[in-house]
Design a protein around this nucleic acid. Structure first.
Lengths: 348, 348
DNA sequence: GTGAAAGCGCTAACAA
DNA sequence: TTGTTAGCGCTTTCAC
């Protein structure tokens, strides 16, 4: 022990004080498995309060009980900076606040893509977690090392954001980004646009392909040609949005609308319009994705965009993992698909 | 147990396989406290690998050993959204990556200001943490409930960002924001400015007062009057920076320079200059604070600002807490004061 | 409705 | 250098 801690107050101490056996103390604390008389329970609770007794999580965990702890495993290019996006920040907020309300603690395990999994394996087998929430940036292909490690550890798991988890038999909560891309594009088409450009995100992310797939589906469905000259982007940042949009606007047949895979790209597109003195919406309509308030609040005019139910996703994931833990239910291959919502503002 | 896990592989299993006693297995795993022969160690390690043995953290924790886990307690208005600032995101990155490198896990405990501390107390006494890193948004006054809870739990602790911890006998790592405010203001004075406005941040944060204190000290030191008309701000956002700056510019004697307590405020100031057709730096110089890349990359011209060694702070805090845990050193009232650095770009 | 006792997996004191 | 064993605090089976 590093510092000389005070001697712990144990259930035995409580039992002695309340004139009952240690077993009864446990019954009272856990509300079972045997019943206790009101009188005894009262004495025990009083003794607990008087002594300031606190449950020892290690002992309970060793014995095989609950740890009241959930792991959050996230895989990303820079997993920790990832919270800077509106989506991730809200997802985390949702997870954390729901877990907190249910009295679970959260242990973080950020993993870089392609990082060795030794620590993950260690954590999963350390017997200090009751379950894990996993967030992958990429779709799990036929085989995914992280999900395999979780499977091998045989620990309750819920995946957020990536539907791939489904194949591994894990419950998953995610936004249908293909539909989101479709909805955004369709909206532009319905506004009368026929040449619609797309600014894609970072290709390493599965959502990038999905949003674009939705875009393509909408074009196809309305009989519009897919012009590869109208595809740009490739990262998530404004600079790329600006540069790609400049190219779009220099085309012989420039687009009359741009659908960007995130709001930063869209803000770059906005800047490109301003450079050329084009009117937003009247000359070129722009629609973003994410409804990231940090970006949207700096945008003028206010950006039309797709909002993701990120907070709600986090809450759901937390709710599901706790339920899985507490009911001990078998792994269920359930998907929880949430929709993206069009937020109409002034750019489209 | 929720799911029917496979039977654990224990040290006894390893011992049996390696034809040694369980004690020797422990010695090998922990590198002591008794020596082992190379031969035995080899056999044990092989058995561990063959059986896929993983240490049970609960058992070790119960026995009184290390948990390889550190808590990160943060108190803020919205503790989870807090990661969206460059400072917090980098701080977290530094803490997490250093802890990971040292093979410690991170348990999160975000607390709202004025929230009940029951969960914190529970966590601190749950015997699953070896130490905690605490980040407060406010200076600890004479008495702070969070730090008192940590003191009562008698668990190793390092504070980040807030010097107040010093009074509680905890090691702390923080940026000298008073000096940062002073440096920024002094720089403006040395550029020849005599009327310098200040955009303060959210008053609920201790750094707001500190940055302003530095500003005032510089004015005083150079014999410049403190004009309360030149004090604005009050939140961290761009909008406030814009509005306050409009007022500054409408004054009978407008400022020739503005020092903002963060970059968003500064970007608002920039917008105010543009509105009035004023030239940045030539007419009014602007200096921000934080060097937040998300803001700075959208700023034109590039913003002169104060950079904080946030990542380094996180690394240090992690390094210190691990050292405190592993050496079992007594609580030391050490302060680690890091400087903010002026980043000269094009606005001042 | 309550008590006695076993045992989870580990570390370390003690014995050899 | 290695083996034997006690016991950390808890939950739960079994006995009453």
């Amino acid at each position: 022990m590093s510092t000389d801690r005070k001697k712990r107050v144990t259930q035995n101490d409580v039992a002695r004080r309340a004139n009952v056996s240690n077993a009864v103390v446990s019954y009272v604390i856990n509300g079972g498995p045997r019943p206790t008389s009101d009188d005894t329970r009262g004495r025990v609770l009083r003794a607990i309060a008087e002594l300031g007794y606190q449950l020892d999580a290690s002992a309970r965990g060793l014995r095989g009980g609950r740890n009241q702890a959930v792991g959050f495993v996230l895989q990303d290019v820079e997993p920790l900076k990832a919270f800077r996006s509106s989506f991730s920040a809200q997802l985390l907020t949702g997870i954390a606040s729901e877990l907190k309300a249910r009295n679970y603690f959260l242990t973080f395990l950020p993993l870089e893509v392609d990082e060795q999994l030794a620590q993950l394996v260690q954590l999963l087998h350390s017997n200090r977690l009751d379950g894990v929430i996993v967030r992958l940036m990429q779709d799990a292909p036929a085989t995914d090392p992280i999900l395999e490690a979780v499977t091998a550890a045989n620990i309750p798991c819920v995946c957020v954001e990536r539907p791939g988890a489904h194949r591994f038999g894990f419950r998953s909560v995610f936004v249908d980004d293909e539909r989101g891309g479709y909805a955004a594009t369709r909206y532009l088409i319905e506004q009368g646009h026929r040449r619609i450009a797309h600014l894609g995100g970072d290709w390493r992310y599965a959502v990038t392909a999905q949003r674009m797939a939705g875009y393509r589906r909408a074009l196809t469905e309305f009989g519009l040609p897919a012009d590869e000259l109208l595809i740009g982007g490739g990262t998530w940042d404004r600079e790329t949005g600006l540069n790609s949009s400049r190219h779009f606007l220099e085309l012989a047949e420039p687009p009359t609308a741009i659908f960007a895979a995130n709001d930063s790209l869209a803000s770059g597109a906005l800047a490109a319009l301003q450079e050329r003195g084009l009117r937003v919406r009247d000359d070129v309509a722009i629609i973003g994705y994410d409804d990231d308030e940090l970006v949207v609040e700096r945008t003028s005019p206010p950006l039309t965009t797709m909002r993701l139910p990120s907070m709600q996703m986090g809450r759901r994931a937390a709710e599901f993992i706790v339920r899985a833990i507490e009911t001990g239910q078998q792994r269920r291959e359930t998907e929880d698909i949430l929709p993206a919502e069009l937020i109409q503002r002034d750019t489209a």
